[in-house]
């Protein structure tokens, strides 16, 4: 057996161990980038081999919490890809307006940026009072900081610029106040969001939505898991409901493609048939 295949075996065992011990299922994640992140974890935890990391993670639950930071990628922005939010505002909001109560799911919400951006759009379009946003993730640390809704002051310039490009109707400054050495998002926005733990790898449908936004999460899954996740996302939508993906994610290569039409090419917003 080559060194390379030995490393593959070790990685497989690590993921099995994590699944059996902590019920987090990374076994069907896209391998190429997962391998890199496990590589960084080895350096961080000063483990010579993946087997050593496996041994430690089994014995030290605290280390697992820290390892989650390597296994999941917490990179986000408010109004990331402004075109996406602009399209939601222009083409999806008119549809949401026809509902007495609006349910939206931000799946893989990381530290909350996406959920708060959605809340701002709904607020400006007069829908927030009758809307509920479920924001879910598998990383408990991220969910906790999402719930706090406090962001580093340095990030505000970028958020503000994105907000403007996304067609914001007011001033981004209206939505936060400076405190705790950061920017604290407005209570009105938080009130409409429920943050909770949910895995697209192991959990299933929990409510019926008019819009599901799942951005830059599916890229971390392999083909099989991606199909499973798309199944859950699609089954959560009501008829004619909308599915929003990341700007380089597409349904084109999926068996679920036929269940949707693309609303605006390029914006990666699909409508369930």
């Amino acid at each position: 057996m080559t060194d390379r295949s030995v490393r593959d075996v070790e990685l497989g065992l690590l993921l099995d161990a994590i699944y059996l011990r902590y019920h987090h299922d990374f076994r069907s994640y896209a391998q190429a980038s997962l391998k890199r992140r496990v590589g960084s974890a080895l350096l961080h935890f000063k483990c010579e081999t993946v087997s050593r990391l496996q041994e430690r993670v089994l014995g030290e639950p605290k280390l697992f919490t820290e390892l989650l930071r390597f296994l999941t990628v917490q990179v986000s922005d408010m109004f990331r890809d402004p075109l996406y939010y602009r399209t939601l505002r222009e083409s999806v909001v008119p549809y949401l307006e026809t509902y007495a109560s609006v349910k939206i799911w931000a799946a893989g919400c990381s530290t909350g940026e996406e959920a708060y951006s959605l809340a701002i759009v709904l607020y400006e379009e007069g829908l927030l009072d009758r809307a509920l946003i479920y924001a879910t993730d598998i990383n408990p640390e991220s969910l906790r900081s999402a719930e706090e809704g406090v962001y580093q002051t340095e990030r505000i310039t970028k958020f503000t610029e994105n907000y403007r490009l996304a067609g914001g109707r007011a001033s981004f400054g209206d939505y936060y106040s400076a405190a705790y050495g950061g920017a604290v998002l407005d209570r009105r926005l938080k009130k409409a969001i429920v943050f909770s733990d949910h895995s697209l790898a192991t959990d299933s449908v929990f409510a019926e939505m008019q819009l599901v936004s799942c951005r830059n999460v599916l890229i971390y899954f392999d083909k099989t898991l991606q199909e499973r996740a798309l199944g859950v996302l699609g089954d959560s939508l009501c008829r004619k409901g909308f599915l929003g993906l990341g700007s380089k994610e597409t349904l084109r290569f999926s068996q679920h493609a036929a269940e949707f039409t693309e609303l605006v090419p390029g914006a990666r917003i699909y409508q369930k048939i």
Binding site: Q31, V73, K248
Partner: peptide, 28 residues
């Protein structure tokens, strides 16, 4: 986005941290 090739000869993307200050990174 970083660009990677999987064993099943398909592309995959990631928004992991930049490598060598770059995203996409050639090393990746």
């Amino acid at each position: 986005y970083h660009l990677l090739i999987e064993r099943n000869r398909a592309l995959s993307l990631s928004i992991d941290e930049p490598v060598q200050l770059s995203r996409p990174a050639i090393d990746v």
